[in-house]
Design a protein around this nucleic acid. Structure first.
Lengths: 243, 243
DNA sequence: ACGTCAACTTAATCATTGTTAGCGTGTCTC
DNA sequence: GAGACACGCTAACAATGATTAAGTTGACGT
């Protein structure tokens, strides 16, 4: 129930929901489950039969490297309200796994429910499709950031994005949020060594842009951080638009 | 007509199409148009009313950099059979533009047709959704490649992917294909300087992996190239699977 | 044939990032 | 409280890639 409400907020931030669609969403049967930091939420396997949304905490898509099983790359982060693996519903299988980042609660939805929605609720279907395309737009922006920003600016971009996404669903405010990622995990996201991430964190602190102790982050100078990162939230598609 | 056949081949490579779905696709009214190298196929603008598929040539998604309008990053390449900007149908707008890479022919489909499909052809809808999710999987793989491969291996990965994608729709065979990208444009894709791309090209030539003159590429040693790039085509989702 | 231009190529130097190593701190266990 | 461990932090050095500069090639027009 609660999770569905998060997803509803996610959708309503971007489009208007009819009563009929709202009711269908609220009727979704979900199966709540908790995961500890680093636990596998969605394994790499074919024929998955359910998809999940995030209720609390965060999740990441982890790609093991061929020939180097001890290394990995994290290609996406998911926050409360995200319908994480609709991919598993539409594609033959995943080429990566979804891990809990910090303690995380998710709700699973059976694919039979999603089939029902795609057969009978075309507007809702387009909205779920939209959710996956926003994820794709985020991937593209990460590619842009990786190619055009270096260390501190790259890290700054990630912080800006996460704050805006958390704030959009009401999960963060006052420029404060919790980021339960180790520096080694940030390195797997940004494509740096953890030592270099440490340098970038120090740089953002030294510039007075953030206060950052453990998982707790406060953005002290949003404008400075956003300017350094050349951050523009257009790709998050937060504008209301009928689809 | 011809283009729709390409897209049909793209879908049939991954799923079985019913007669009904096939007929609906063949009834698509399309508007063919040609573009020269570098011309804008889909501009950055809101309220686009049609989407396009590629018939011949290639297209790229180009992201202008904020504050540096002379620079850009290319986050995706599209080959014949790709339904390029379904994004424009589902999202409020694009944060990037689609450019022709070399001389390119595309066919535009009006969004009213896509609305009809999402309202009345749920299986086709899931397949179009799938097409956009394969693009997202490619984005993720590019992120993995950017984070884990350096210069020659990174370039090798791109070559492997493009060949497999062209080959999958029957647009390339015998390890030969045409890649109408300048080294400067490859640099915009890989996130390197064009000088560095040149070094990578030379390296692949020196190793005897490719013959590469102008746009014409022949892969002389697929196994060597794929091993260097740690290439695994799983993410292209070429396995047949009913959705 | 000649000039022009864009793309490709190479080399030298500089900046960014990776690697190795080591130290400090907090937490957990015994 | 001692030891082990994971994480954060820093420094010195090595590797990778960017930048600047300049030479080569081929296509094109005159």
């Amino acid at each position: 129930m609660a999770i569905t409400e998060y997803f509803i907020r996610y959708l309503q931030r971007r489009d208007t929901l009819s009563e009929i669609d709202l009711n269908r969403l609220r009727l979704l049967k979900t199966d709540k489950q908790s995961f500890g930091a680093g636990e596998v939420i969605v394994p790499i396997e074919r024929n998955v039969t359910r998809s999940c949304m995030i209720l609390r905490g965060m999740a990441g898509r982890s790609h093991p490297l061929v020939g180097r099983p001890d290394e990995r790359v994290i290609t996406a982060l998911h926050v409360p309200g995200d319908f994480v693996d609709l991919h598993g519903f539409v594609l033959a299988g995943l080429e990566h796994e979804v891990l809990a980042v910090g303690p995380t609660e998710v709700e699973f939805v059976d694919h039979s429910e999603l089939i029902d929605i795609t057969e009978n609720f075309p507007h809702l279907t387009r909205l779920m499709w939209m959710a996956t395309l926003i994820d794709a737009a985020i991937h593209r922006q990460w590619l842009v950031a990786a190619a055009s920003l270096r260390s501190s600016a790259h890290l700054a971009h990630l912080l800006c994005e996460i704050y805006i996404r958390l704030n959009a669903v009401g999960a963060a405010s006052n420029f404060q949020f919790s980021l339960p990622l180790l520096q080694r995990e940030l390195a797997d996201i940004l494509g740096y060594s953890s030592i270099h991430v440490n340098r970038a964190v120090r740089d953002l602190r030294d510039r007075g842009f953030v206060r950052w102790t453990g998982s707790d982050i406060t953005i002290l100078n949003w404008d400075g951080l956003a300017r350094l990162a050349r951050f523009d939230s257009t790709y998050l598609d937060l504008e209301r638009h009928s689809r």
